[in-house]
Write a protein that binds this DNA or RNA. Structure first.
Lengths: 141, 141
DNA sequence: ATCGGTGCAAACAATTTGCATTAGA
DNA sequence: TCTAATGCAAATTGTTTGCACCGAT
């Protein structure tokens, strides 16, 4: 995905800051907060400002390239927008956030389209619980 | 539901502020933000403080009587905790928040319990879109 | 009489904004 | 060149906390 193209096509400028935010986001194994993105980019560009992170993320979201997930309290978590609809599993014990692939989001959409008159644009599903690694092993006997 | 009992049973005190927050919450036709609750209670008790709203809501949530819903940006929205699992439909046009009853949340739970090893404790489902009232009528012809 | 709860104000965290400067197109 | 984008700092917004006083049990 060529952000430079996308940006210019929409009349925006391609700046090093925007490229950096995007590449950090793409390289991330998991979701990142604005602060985390800021920290990573700052290693290379010390004067890089948080405000620019927010501005860039908002822009990327407008273009449909990035997406914010609110996983409870605390700051928003950002990720590359996936065309497929996944949802988040947040472990209360270790804090790990997992993507879970499934047709559930699609089911919701289908369910709503059936006569409810509500046009679903964005389905946000967050499940809090305890992940397999943190769950107590089944009691023997 | 007798909050007084619940509170005292758990070793908490029943104060007029807590009663007021609870009754405002129960009387509300829809979700309320902490500020809205504060505003309503303040009509009767002018010196009533926002901090107490937050403290009370947190307490009620701990007791399982109230629940916070994060419906996007902005402040959290509070409601009486329903035993049944409903989810929220937020209209981007008019801002209306609808409860939608369905087995979807249960489906999610069932889906996850099937071999994924993730123990779902809380399923938060928020759908943003356009409600029936705001949706453009189907084009004739 | 206790000790938990309150009001108040100040602290906080996350995000946004105003403005002068800089740099992409 | 010309305007959009940045850095910086200050402003906002939503929520939490410290502390002295008050009131429910």
């Amino acid at each position: 995905m060529d952000v430079g193209h996308r940006l210019r096509d929409e009349g925006y400028r391609l700046t090093p800051q925007r490229q950096l935010v995007w590449s950090v986001l793409r390289a991330a194994e998991h979701h990142l907060t604005a602060e985390e993105i800021h920290a990573r980019v700052s290693r290379t560009v010390p004067e890089f400002n948080v405000a620019s992170v927010y501005r860039t993320l908002t822009l990327l979201a407008d273009l449909g390239l990035a997406k914010e997930a609110r996983l409870g309290d605390g700051p928003g978590h950002w990720e590359v927008a996936h065309p497929d609809d996944a949802f988040h599993l947040v472990c209360r014990a270790c804090g790990t956030v997992d993507h879970h692939q499934g047709d559930l989001v699609e089911q919701v959409r289908a369910h709503l389209s059936g006569g409810h008159g509500f046009v679903a644009q964005d389905v946000d599903l967050v499940v809090h619980g305890v992940c397999a690694a943190c769950a107590p092993p089944p009691a023997a006997g």
